[in-house]
Design a protein around this nucleic acid. Structure first.
Ligand SMILES: [Zn+2]
Ligand SMILES: [Zn+2]
Ligand SMILES: [Zn+2]
Ligand SMILES: [Zn+2]
Lengths: 154, 154
DNA sequence: GCAGCGATGTTATAACATCGCATATCCGCC
DNA sequence: GGCGGATATGCGATGTTATAACATCGCTGC
């Protein structure tokens, strides 16, 4: 049975609720963008997103999608992978602990990984040099399991 | 006394030697770009680099600098910080172990940090999910010591 | 009504990066 | 010296990613 759809719907409703709690609102545009992000778990580029948007909203323009993305990132609902100019939905409602973003150089897929031990070690390293961790996004280039196996997924 | 200059000169000569070992050649353009990277340890953008280049080489164009940067990155002499579209010289001749790149969101400065413990922990995390580390560049957003102290360096 | 405000529409442009093809330079070989 | 391939550079155009600037809409409170 089709649980993906209802999963996505539930996730959208949770997202809307968490925005409301913070006094922000998940408007129709933002909701559509977030839904598209949910549909492409490996990440999507802003202009591909724009193209998708235009299918239901002919007048969508770059600011339309960038504004929605900025909002979603502010709300912790999405992340940007700078290395690849790729945007992904956050897999963890709203996480306080940083995530590792594993970017596969073969298939360009992104995997979000939470790992408390890593983060502990990370904090220690940074503290030792006087730095303070700022964002929840740590980008790492790492070949994904599929591509390690040689299957070179799309 | 002015040891920066001779340091940079030495570094350039080491770089040239390591290129030669690999059958590559550090040509005049590439050498100039690398020298500019050495002069801006916090990282520099491609088009700022281009502007600098034009002061001594009026006909420099975007491909001029991007080609040189690609070469330097291939040779392990420079790194790209995807998050910021910033390029930095590698602080470690040619390093096999990955580095952490701490990008300060206040001053946009980049610090390259080698930390074996972190890397060990990182390998463990990745192996646990079937990933294999690919590139020597791990990007982390972290406020630098100067900015932690509130000095908001340029 | 009508200010105040957040969101959106719209146009243009800034900023970053690559392509394609011609020319030049180097180097080993005849 | 002359040739041929590989590498490097010049140069114009183009492609890709992101933001600036300004107008407008729709709601809420007064
Ligand atoms: Zn997340
Ligand atoms: Zn992959
Ligand atoms: Zn390095
Ligand atoms: Zn700083």
């Amino acid at each position: 049975m089709n649980s993906d759809l209802s999963d996505a719907t539930q996730a959208l409703e949770r997202a809307a609720a968490s925005c409301r709690e913070r006094g922000a609102s998940l408007t129709a545009i933002r909701r559509e963008v977030l839904a598209l992000l949910y549909r492409t778990p490996k990440g999507i580029k802003a202009y591909d997103l724009l193209e998708q948007m235009r299918q239901t909203r002919g007048n969508a323009s770059p600011p339309t999608v960038y504004r929605a993305l900025d909002f979603l990132i502010e709300q912790g609902l999405a992340h940007k992978i700078g290395r690849m100019n790729l945007f992904v939905a956050c897999r963890h409602g709203a996480h306080s602990s940083p995530s590792l973003f594993l970017v596969c150089p073969k298939c360009n897929g992104v995997t979000e990984l939470e790992d408390p031990d890593m983060v502990t070690s990370l904090y220690a390293s940074l503290a030792a040099t006087g730095h303070r961790l700022d964002s929840p996004e740590v980008e790492i280039s790492a070949v994904c399991p599929q591509c390690v196996a040689g299957r070179e997924a799309a």
